[in-house]
Simulated scan of single mutants.
Amino acid sequence: MPSFFKYAAMALAVAAPFASAQTYTDCNPLKKTCPADAGSTESKMSFDFTKPSGLNKWKTTAGKVNAGPNGAAFTVAQQGDAPTIETDFYIFYGEVSVTMQAAPGQGIVSSIVFESDDLDEIDWEALGGNTAQIETNYFGKGDTSTYNRDTWPAVANPQTTFHTYTVNWQKDKTVWSIDGTPVRTLQYSDASGGSRYPQTPMRVRIGVWAGGDPRNGKGTIEWAGGATDYSKAPFSMYVKSVSITNTNPATSYTYTDNSGSSGSIKMNGAGTLNETSVSSGVVSATTSATDSKSTATGTGTHTTMATTVHTTATSSIEAISTGSSSSIDASSSTSKSGSPSAASSSAQPTASYNAAPSVVASYLGPVSLLGLVTALLQL
């Protein structure tokens, strides 16, 4: 079944602040030139929602969300409630982990959504009446011509137990994990040959809503698990913490054309690679929030990057070549719809490229030239 927002046109009007936001964009860069998306120069961010300060860098787009001892509370107390928050910045590939206890209640939907301006999307959605599963889903470029991309991995009692839901979204593949265990892997090529693979800068949005509201469309109510009985409200979802790793930190991201491809994204004021080492054919590098090339030249630096990056606890990244995306793990099985099956998401080999030539050329070349000029002047 589709993600909740795919039925936004049929959804209850008062619930629209959350539901319709998923298919709405202030400016679709596939259709016209749009302003740059605000980024973040921090490669790693952690948010403790048991403290009010944890909600810094998040904006409330609907309802009311307050921090508390169980984390931020998102409550549907009556018809029309749909409390929602989203980051005030975008990330360009990365990993997001959310420690959440889903809301109970038939028809109540607890959602974690990544979405871009051109409607690329990655989802987690927990239904209040489903105590044994959670949905994973994705969409590319707002394409709702089919609804066959969802999977339903097992999770124990999500409405009474905190679980950590993680998405590691990279250029070559996306991995959904529950409490550190992968439950689904989507290869780039699995998404209509890559044309529907999420690949543009995204915000992270968290919220709860009543998919089972009696005034919603029949399809929405059935997908959500049945009609919501508001006499049993309130229904509360709790989020204790969120951690975000941004693979390509930058002050902003700009679409340079209308293709919606990762290669068309220009990173403005991006951090540079200031330390590199080669290990097992993979270049490992640490990012700096300061653009040293910008400092050296006195001008703003604009970098286009579409790399696959895996971030470690030491904030290092593994950068692979910036060529066109391709399927890395041919062992991933797919269903008839073209979506990877849940069974294929166990151990996935790590993508490995020798990116040394491109990294050296892109980042060390200017430094080497500067050193040569300095040496000649000293002579």
Rank of each mutant, 00 (worst) to 15 (best):
Q199C: 07
P153Y: 00
N130E: 11
F114A: 01
R215D: 06
K173T: 02
Q133A: 13
N148Y: 14
I206R: 02
T144C: 10
D190K: 14
L186H: 04
A132R: 07
E222C: 00
Q133R: 10
F139V: 13
W223L: 07
Q170C: 06
G128T: 07
I134V: 15
Q106R: 01
G142T: 08
A132C: 06
I108L: 14
E222G: 00
R205H: 02
T151R: 11
E135L: 12
M202Y: 07
A126K: 00
V208K: 09
S145W: 01
Q199N: 08
T181P: 05
D213K: 08
V183A: 03
D118C: 12
P158S: 13
G105Q: 09
T174V: 14
S110K: 02
T146R: 04
R215W: 07
E135R: 00
N216G: 07
D150G: 01
A210V: 12
V208A: 02
I112D: 06
I112Q: 04
G142Q: 08
N130S: 14
S110Y: 05
T136W: 03
Y138W: 15
Y138P: 07
T144H: 08
V204C: 10
V109P: 02
V155E: 03
K173Y: 05
A227M: 13
T220G: 02
T151L: 07
S145I: 12
Q133M: 08
Q187L: 15
V175M: 09
T136Q: 10
E135F: 05
L119S: 02
V98M: 14
L186R: 11
G226H: 05
I108K: 03
N216F: 09
G107F: 03
I206Q: 04
T160A: 13
W209D: 00
G142E: 10
K173G: 04
T220W: 14
N157A: 15
A224K: 05
S177V: 11
G105N: 08
E135D: 15
A154V: 07
M202I: 13
E135N: 03
I134P: 02
N137R: 00
Q159M: 13
S111Y: 04
S177Q: 09
G129W: 02
K171V: 10
A102R: 02
W209P: 02
N216S: 11
N137M: 08
I221V: 13
I178Q: 03
K171S: 11
S110E: 14
P214K: 15
K141C: 14
A154C: 04
V155Y: 00
Q101S: 09
Y188H: 07
A191G: 05
G207K: 15
G225T: 05
G207W: 15
I221S: 04
S97T: 11
G212F: 11
R215M: 10
F162P: 08
R184Y: 00
W124P: 05
S145G: 10
T200I: 13
S116N: 05
K218H: 03
I221T: 05
M100S: 03
S145D: 04
W176K: 11
G212D: 08
T185D: 00
A227L: 13
E135I: 04
S97M: 06
T185L: 10
P198R: 01
D179G: 10
S189W: 01
T131G: 06
Y147E: 06
A210D: 11
I206T: 00
P104S: 05
H163D: 11
A191R: 00
G129F: 03
V167M: 09
A154G: 10
I206K: 01
G107N: 09
Y165R: 12
